[in-house]
Design a protein around this nucleic acid. Sequence first.
DNA 1: ATTAACGGCGCG
DNA 2: AAAGCGCGCCGTTAAT
Length: 549
Amino acid sequence: MHVVIAPADRGVIATEVDDAGLPTAEPTALRDAEYARYVAQSAPTTRWVWEDTAVSYPPLLRAGVRVERCADLRLCRAILRHSTLSAGSPVATGPRDALDGESPLLGPASAQTLFDIGAEAEHIDPVLEHQRQLATVAAAPEPGRLRLLLAAESAGALAAAEMRFAGLPWSAARHEALLADLLGPRGPAGARPARLEELAREIRAALGAPTLNPDSPQEVLAALRAAGLVVNTTRSADLRRIEHPAIPPLLDYKKRSRILSANGWSWLDTWVVDGRFRADFLPGGVPSGRWAARGGGALQLPKQLRSAVVADPGWKLVVADAAQLEPRVLAALSGDLTMADAGRGRDLYEGIVATGAVPDRNSAKYAMLGAIYGATAGQGGRLLPRLGQAFPRAMGLVEAAARQGERGEAVTTRLGRSTAAAGAGWRDAQWSASSPDASAVDERRARAQARERGRFTRNFVVQGTAAEWALCWLAELRRRLAALPADGGRPELVYFLHDEVLVHTPEVLAGPVAQAVEEAAGAAGRLMFGTFPIDFPLEVAVVDDYGQA
DNA sequence: ATTAACGGCGCG
DNA sequence: AAAGCGCGCCGTTAAT
């Protein structure tokens, strides 16, 4: 059964619908308090259909109610709007409305209540939209692909809301100890900590620039040049090549200063409340289908600080990441049996070395990444031809995706997420560069833009299909975790980072959780690629803090 | 005084 | 360390 939930004054309107989305009963108006009770009493397999999971699910979580399944109409709209599998459908060609674009609840407005959203935001008719989406999927070629994608995307939205609700366990004491170690004691707000001030003095002395602000790239560049160094940027990677007494303290300063500005004491004050770091996770926030995040740089936690993620007493963290996910996805997506063989039961890069295509693991890794990203130079670029001979199907797929992108065409992932059409500016540039009186500059720029779009589409099919695998993994894991006994607390998904998950679990359930993570990965592979013989091995660790993983 | 762009760097 | 993809956020600087 599906139930459509629409925001209304001081509550919601619930409408039961059938498999075609047609109402089977009169809509029911529910006040906020009744809403959670109504959902809790419904069949657990009900699919809850709503505009925004981030709007309609948190009130349920606060009332202690979880749901198994939903359809997030906004996220599904975004997919169906562009997918080549739904091209020409009513959802794809309909006028833009309030369901296109980001959820109104995101960002600092998240203190808003369901009531505010009901009163203020523009709304579409979710019952009608649900009908249109169901019909669009049913009419698509291979409807199973889109159906799986929309279900996985929606399950991801549930997981994202639950992750925000649970929060990432964060030890402020551990974090402060790390900061004291790196920066010295916390000083007055705005003042440079002792350790950074020392380094700044050292840098100024070495460059003979007594007033230099090491945080200003402009000033640093000028001071380096004044000291006779030939530099064009102040990037650490570039500075590392230079021999000069100012460079070591400058690199050290940059490293520590980054920790201060991105994850220092004020970050801790802002983002960690009651031992939990809470951020907004945005499923579908990236065109490829990867998640984005807002608040506290949740997807960029420096490895240096991960030991501040600490399980509660009597609890553990189960940390799992998928090994060499993107190349494995490429092997399966392209049906490249040789490449799939290379990854079976072992490190994929070692397997590539074993084929004789490249000399060592590092070469294999950078050549593969080069193939997926579109490298033209460097070690990755040089080894590409070798990979092309060893794995023609896999390399043929990314090459074809690049050529399609260069022509301005859309490309599509395994389950049906497509790139947006090339922009008007891009098309104009290509068109005018092909005219007989185009200047050499115009032609060069158009070619550069075409290659740039080719790298994007080349990467999109792999990154996007990997994101789909990860979503299926997450959805399957979420289901299995819910089925575990709530033995002194329930295991919670608390973090998801593209190819990596963290589950915070009572210690007694750590084993079953680790098993669930493994089983979910196997299930994801079968959902995505059927019987194609590809492995998705995980590295799983049961630890007390994230730094140990 | 506020906003936008830039250089830089963290993550996958 | 590798230079090719996708992000968010910081301090500085230029623009409004």
